[in-house]
């Protein structure tokens, strides 16, 4: 079986967030974020620079703990793609992708290479790729992860129009298989029934209004209490 084309079994592709507050560098940036995502759904996150999109996505991926609130859904279900592509310049395209396929226990990188139009480049060292080609390789990694919830931070940066269409097709296929996706992006991918979450209303409020702004993450103190 080259790529998981079956519907995702456990862990489930649903993700529910209630009253989530997140902190960047220990300072609250967002609070009261709630949404629910069921299999087959996509959520597009919007908001001005610095509002906390990346922080929210990293929290959803389990890379940092929430300041408050709850995330329901297994962290093991989430595949994360951040700003950095996570590629090794001296390894070839195929070696980079095979590594992540092996880590995630999925077999075969051929379909993922084909889906992102990288088959002709597979013998090239990743360091010699253009920015857009690197991005496509980073997105191909999502396909080999076999995980049901894709969390992506500005996935279309440096992609040309053709590659954006390829990426949109991959996301649509992922949703059709019962996967889910959360992404911070400012371009319209033409995803069917994608919900849009604008983060501006969730900016952390000052303490005078009962908010968390300016409150430091006291996780360290708790750890040593």
């Amino acid at each position: 079986m080259p790529l998981r084309m079956d519907r995702f079994s456990a862990p489930d592709a649903s993700l529910a967030v209630t009253g989530l507050a997140v902190a960047r560098a220990g300072i609250a940036v967002l609070e009261g974020v709630s949404f629910a995502l069921s299999p087959g759904q996509a959520l597009v996150i919007r908001g001005p620079n610095g509002i906390g999109k990346t922080t929210l996505l990293r929290t959803l991926s389990g890379l940092q703990p929430p300041l408050a609130g709850r995330i329901e859904g297994a962290a093991e279900a989430v595949a994360y793609a951040g700003h950095a592509d996570g590629l090794k310049a001296t390894l070839t395209v195929a070696e980079n992708l095979s590594f992540w396929a092996a880590i995630h226990g999925s077999a075969g990188i051929g379909p993922a290479l084909a889906a992102m139009n990288l088959t002709a480049l597979q013998g090239r060292p990743a360091g010699s790729l253009s920015a857009g080609q690197k991005r496509r390789l980073a997105l191909a990694r999502m396909l080999v992860s076999g995980r049901p919830v894709w969390v992506m931070d500005e996935p279309t940066v440096s992609l040309d129009a053709g590659s954006v269409a390829l990426f949109a097709d991959a996301v649509r296929a992922h949703l059709a298989r019962g996967g889910a996706a959360v992404m911070a992006t400012h371009i319209d991918l033409g995803l069917p029934g994608a919900a849009v979450l604008d983060l501006a209303p969730f900016r952390a409020r000052p303490p005078a209004e009962g908010g968390l702004a300016g409150r430091f993450d006291n996780g360290f103190d708790e750890a040593f209490a």
């Binding site: 093991e76 595949a79 994360y80 996570g86 880590i103």
Partner: peptide, 14 residues
């Protein structure tokens, strides 16, 4: 850490 692989390894199944 610099190329982002550490984030991905931290979210990987191992």
């Amino acid at each position: 850490f610099e190329d982002g692989s550490l984030d991905l390894l931290a979210t990987a199944p191992i």
